[in-house]
Computed example of a mutant assay.
Amino acid sequence: MAPATEKFDVIYKCLRCGTNVTNTELTRLPEIKCICGFRVFTKVRPPIVKTLQAV
């Protein structure tokens, strides 16, 4: 049996207008561009904060 892997979509945010776009929405378009025409995106970090104990 194959191991179950979680598949989640990476979310990108436009630097100019702040629109959130998923990776699958960007691959459908002929070129990587926001609806406002800007081409620079940042990757949105998940809201989960990991805490580690010091060794």
Rank of each mutant, 00 (worst) to 15 (best):
P3K: 01
P3S: 08
T5M: 03
T5Q: 04
T5P: 02
T5R: 07
T5H: 07
E6C: 10
E6D: 12
K7T: 10
D9L: 13
V10A: 12
V10L: 12
Y12N: 11
K13L: 01
K13C: 04
C14M: 01
C14H: 06
L15K: 11
L15I: 12
L15M: 11
R16K: 10
C17S: 03
C17D: 08
G18D: 02
G18N: 03
T19W: 12
T19R: 14
T19M: 14
N20H: 14
N20K: 11
V21D: 13
T22C: 14
T22N: 10
N23R: 13
T24I: 11
T24E: 14
E25R: 11
E25Q: 13
L26F: 07
T27Y: 00
T27Q: 13
R28L: 01
L29C: 03
L29F: 00
E31S: 09
E31H: 09
I32P: 02
K33S: 13
K33A: 10
C34M: 13
C34L: 12
C34A: 08
C34N: 05
I35A: 08
I35V: 08
I35N: 03
C36M: 00
F38I: 00
F38T: 03
R39C: 14
V40N: 11
V40G: 07
V40F: 08
V40A: 11
F41Q: 00
F41V: 06
F41R: 01
T42G: 10
K43Y: 03
K43E: 15
V44G: 00
V44N: 01
V44W: 09
V44H: 11
R45L: 15
R45E: 13
P46G: 06
P46Q: 03
P46S: 06
P46E: 06
P46I: 02
P47V: 02
P47L: 04
P47R: 02
P47M: 00
I48M: 01
I48F: 02
V49K: 13
T51C: 11
L52I: 04
L52G: 05
Q53M: 01
Q53C: 03
Q53Y: 07
Q53E: 07
Q53W: 07
A54P: 05
V55P: 14
V55T: 03
V55G: 12
